[in-house]
Computed example of a mutant assay.
Amino acid sequence: MARIVIISGSPSASSRLQGVLDFVQQAGVQAGLDVEWVQVRDLAPEDLVYSRFDSPAIIEANRVIAEADAVVVASPIYKASYTGVLKSFLDLIPQKGLEGKVVLPLAIGGTIAHLLAIDHAFKPVLSALGAHHILSGAFILDTQVQRLENGSFQLNEEIAQRLSQVVETFIQEASWRAERNQTTGLSQDVALT
């Protein structure tokens, strides 16, 4: 079974990004994947600001990433880039922490002017972390995700279809990677130091 981890760089639990990531999680679970989360906003601010590599919470987050076959890295776009809280966490992932993993970048923003944020902001840092298999990802306008009165989210039809295609490719690649790793006996572990 493929294992994926969803890294949410949103500082807010009520962010529309959560609706997008709930969609990804549901698709992964339906496909039989083991899905884990790293909600960066739940990590201690002191660990992030002071780069506490030895923090038990940071060590655990890095363990979850090291054991995954594939990783979703997602953030709202602020000032043409991902959030500062996400950057603080990415700085605590080991140098080659994404090596050998399928990586899906996802971003949500208020204007189409941020469309290239995935290519210009996400992909360079993901590459610096050793990711070689970075999928094209998806940029979503926040107007395409409706927050419902009960606290859940609804994606409009166009983005739901587009996101379904992106996530289907991600699931296929993650499953292929897990199968390949099992067949060849490759270790998925990455040094946590």
Rank of each mutant, 00 (worst) to 15 (best):
G109N: 02
G109Y: 10
Y82Q: 07
A121H: 04
I108G: 09
T111F: 00
V72F: 00
S81A: 06
V72N: 00
I118D: 15
A121N: 03
G100D: 10
I118T: 15
V85W: 03
L115D: 05
G84L: 12
V102Y: 09
S81G: 02
A113P: 08
L90T: 15
G84E: 04
K101L: 01
I77S: 06
F89P: 10
D91T: 07
G109I: 03
G109R: 06
Q95P: 02
F89R: 13
G84W: 01
H120L: 05
L115N: 14
Y78Q: 14
K96T: 15
G100N: 05
Y82V: 01
I112H: 02
L115A: 14
K79R: 07
L86K: 09
I108H: 02
D91H: 04
G110Q: 10
I118H: 15
L104E: 14
G100I: 09
G84S: 12
A113V: 14
A74G: 15
K96E: 13
L104H: 10
Y82C: 03
P76L: 05
K79G: 04
L106S: 09
H120S: 09
L116N: 15
I108Q: 09
L90V: 15
K79T: 03
S88L: 12
L106D: 02
K96Y: 11
A80Q: 11
G109E: 12
D69E: 03
I93E: 04
L115H: 03
L106P: 10
V71M: 01
V103S: 10
A113H: 08
S81W: 00
A74M: 04
I108S: 07
T111C: 03
L90R: 08
V85M: 06
I118L: 15
V71W: 00
P94S: 03
I77D: 05
A80C: 01
A117L: 07
A80I: 03
V85R: 08
K87T: 12
S81M: 04
I112D: 06
L90M: 15
Y78C: 03
L86I: 15
I77M: 01
